[in-house]
Computed example of a mutant assay.
Amino acid sequence: MNSHTRPVATAKKLGLLAAVTVCVLSLAQCSGDSSDRGRTPSREHREPPSATAPPPGLEREITAYTAAFDEDSGYRRPSRTDRKTVAAGVGLLLDGRRDEAERRLSDVDFAIRTVTDEATGRRYAEIADRAESGSAPRGWGRVYVDLDSPVRWSAQVPHPVADRHTERLGAQLLSRAPGGVLIVAGAHRKAGRGDQADVAHRRDSVFHAVCDELVRRGLPGVQLHGMAEDSAPDHDVVASTGRGREAVTEGRALADDLKRRGYDVCRAWARSCPLAGRTNVQGRAATARDVPFLHVEFGPRLREDRDHAGEAVAALADVTRTWRRG
């Protein structure tokens, strides 16, 4: 090769290299465009804001527990002795007799441990089923008890996952408002045979036994539910006192607070509302003992959007403030 052809060959090589580089970059851009640009994610993959990882602490603890719940996750109906033993263990813990509570609960393979909400530093006793991690979980649920304040009220989540994100509302409420007990059902409401796992309508569950123990102690409660958008299309929330009227004052306060925050509430004690919880067995037990009980159905945006959920929790926390003074 002479001195005149060498620069030409070099130039051709450089030109070929540049062309390859441009092509590779173009392919990378095209690959990104084909997977993302102009495509709307499917409903299964479009996550609402609150579906991102929750903040560390109690909410993360509870959502990790409920993450595996589905209609096929299984449920075993507890015996009367099982139910009474768990409720008695919760009662002993509320009386400050933790050692006795642990011994009693161990009879049905439940245990107590202390968890700390990293966001607030508050401590909670977690009463949990040791069988949860086994191949056939019983689905009997968990109980969380505030260890840093006198217990004055309860929050109840009977349909975690099935009523989407109600477990998060419960966790956020317990973290935000001192003096609470949170009861979370241990299975999807359709996990058992027939309606066995639908604890809001069954008296033969650990969930009901614990709620009944709290009612026996006079603790008012709020039960958190989630309704579909078309269940009450003109309302964001349905608030009810169940079959009784012991919590009408608290119900009005909750509805007024939510209205000020921009939400429309159907007030079941004053008018006909869907999903008013008249057949709810925990509400009936509370009414039988003249204990205040609120049954609250939240529409999708108040559960699936973290900002709206925060407004709902703030309004609920205001209600518990009244109960804490009682």
Score class of each variant (00 low, 15 high):
H4C: 09
P7H: 12
V8H: 11
L14Y: 04
G15D: 05
A18S: 12
T21G: 14
C23N: 09
Q29D: 05
S34A: 13
S35F: 13
S35N: 09
R37E: 10
P41L: 07
E44T: 11
H45K: 12
A51D: 15
A51P: 13
A53Q: 08
P55M: 09
P56D: 10
L58S: 02
E59L: 15
T63M: 15
D70N: 14
R77E: 12
D82I: 06
A88H: 08
G89F: 15
L93K: 08
G96M: 08
E100K: 02
E102R: 12
E102D: 09
L105S: 02
S106P: 00
V108I: 15
A111K: 03
I112G: 04
V115Q: 07
T116Y: 00
T116W: 00
A119N: 13
G121N: 08
R122T: 12
Y124E: 00
R130H: 14
A131G: 09
P137K: 06
P137R: 07
R138S: 09
V143R: 09
V143P: 05
V143S: 07
Y144F: 15
L147N: 12
S149E: 14
W153L: 07
P158H: 01
V161H: 00
H165K: 08
H165Y: 08
T166K: 00
T166V: 11
E167Y: 13
R168G: 03
L173D: 00
L174R: 02
S175T: 12
P178S: 04
P178F: 07
L182I: 07
I183T: 13
A185Y: 05
G186C: 06
A191F: 07
G192P: 14
R193S: 15
D195E: 12
A197G: 07
D198S: 09
A200K: 10
R202E: 11
S205Q: 10
H208F: 15
H208L: 01
V210C: 01
D212Y: 08
E213S: 12
V215R: 12
R216H: 14
R217S: 10
R217A: 07
R217Q: 09
G218C: 05
G221F: 01
V222T: 13
Q223F: 04
H225Y: 14
M227S: 05
A228F: 06
S231D: 15
H235E: 10
D236N: 03
G242E: 11
A247D: 03
A247Q: 05
A247I: 04
D256S: 11
K259I: 06
R261W: 03
C266N: 04
R267Q: 11
W269R: 01
L275S: 01
R278Y: 08
A285S: 15
A286Q: 02
A288Y: 06
R289S: 12
R289M: 05
R289C: 05
D290Y: 11
D290L: 03
D290W: 08
P292M: 06
L294M: 02
V296T: 09
P300L: 06
E304N: 08
E304M: 06
D305P: 00
H308I: 02
D318P: 00
R321H: 05
T322Q: 14
T322K: 06
R325A: 06
